Computed example of a mutant assay.
Amino acid sequence: MRFLIIIPAHNEEENLPFTLDSLQQQSFKDFRTVIVNDGSTDRTTEVIRKYTDHDSRFETVNLQKSAHQPGSKVVNAFKNGLKTQNTDEFDIICKFDADIILPDNYLETVANAFKNNPEYGLVGGLLYVEKDGSWVYEGNSNKHHVRGPMKAYRKECFVQIGGLRETLGWDNIDSILLENLGWKEVVLPELQVKLIKVKGADYTIRPADYYGRYFYFLGLNRFLAYIASSKEAAKSKSVSFFFNIIKAYEACKTAKLELKISKDEQKAINDKRWKTLKKKWLKI
């Protein structure tokens, strides 16, 4: 199996070397890495050159800086890297972040998982962050969901789901769509991936606006969006937070902002959410 790894990077001079070093140290050697330099203004370009000049497995694509919108920016950079490659040459397509450290056996373990399980469509490890000098499980998502910084797709699955969507919520949309098509998303907990910086630290969007927009672009109907909003408000123990999320969601609906998913895909996402809701809360 051969890997195509796309890494979007914007001003990652401090973190990117750790990511690329961890790739060079992989026990599995058959991969190509495309680093998409998304308008960096620091020394990211020089960092990338140190690898592309001495290792033919590393290439780069340079972009003008794109607008910093959660979700769409990183997927836009990913797609610009992907279109420079002939995907027929690869079996596994990866979207990695520029601030992770992979264990040395990461690619080998993922390759074996795909090889031995033809139903696997998306595979990844678990994210760990540094806390008080130790690496601990991040805990921002359930342990059955492959997080955005370390996605590895079987190429056939990636093609069937239509690739990644330039929208907030893309890394949940992919999971739902592939499962709807009969593929499995699998987390390998033994693969501990270190996340160097906290996700979302660069976002300027307010939390309530983020969730409202997220639920809208995920394609949730009003009922499910309100349920999801109440759950987030309960975590914050704030009634006003609920109404602010709803305000942002309804503003998107009023403006009829474009969704990056089809009507059928929207139905699949709502059906999945409703099924999960009944199973978890209604015990049906």
Rank of each mutant, 00 (worst) to 15 (best):
G182V: 03
Y226E: 13
E185N: 13
E190V: 01
K237W: 09
K197N: 15
S230E: 13
I205Q: 14
L178N: 00
L168N: 03
V239G: 00
N221C: 12
F241M: 10
D209N: 13
A234G: 12
K231Y: 00
V186N: 02
R213N: 15
V193T: 14
P207W: 11
K199C: 12
R222G: 05
K184I: 01
V239P: 02
S236L: 15
F215K: 11
N172K: 12
Y226N: 11
Y226D: 07
F223V: 13
I227M: 07
N221Q: 11
E232Q: 15
G212L: 12
P189G: 08
G169F: 00
K231I: 04
A225N: 07
V187C: 05
L177G: 02
N221P: 05
A234M: 09
K184G: 00
L177C: 02
R206S: 14
L220Q: 12
I176K: 04
A233C: 04
G169V: 01
R222I: 10
S240K: 12
D171Q: 03
Y203A: 09
Q192K: 15
I196D: 04
R222N: 14
G219A: 07
I176A: 06
V198P: 00
P189H: 08
I173L: 08
K235G: 03
Q192H: 10
K197H: 14
G169P: 00
L218R: 15
I173C: 01
Y203E: 14
K197W: 07
S236V: 12
D209H: 10
L224Q: 14
P189C: 05
A233Q: 08
L181S: 04
K235L: 04
A208E: 14
A208F: 12
A233T: 06
K235Y: 06
E190G: 15
D202V: 10
S229A: 15
L168K: 06
E179D: 02
Q192I: 01
Y214M: 12
Y226Q: 12
N172D: 06
L181W: 01
D202G: 09
A233E: 05
L191P: 02
Y226R: 13
I173T: 09
L218P: 03
V186F: 04
V187Y: 04
L191S: 02
D171C: 01
A234V: 02
S229R: 11
S236G: 06
I227P: 05
Y226V: 10
G169S: 01
S240E: 10
L178I: 00
A208K: 06
P189W: 10
A201P: 00
I196L: 15
F215G: 06
I173R: 03
K231W: 01
F223C: 07
G200H: 08
L191D: 02
G200S: 06
F217N: 12
D171V: 00
Q192P: 01
K237D: 11
L218Q: 10
Y203H: 13
G212T: 09
S230K: 13
Y214R: 08
A208L: 06
E190A: 04
F215V: 08
D202S: 14
L177W: 02
R213Q: 15
V187E: 03
L178R: 01
K197R: 13
F223P: 04
K235P: 01
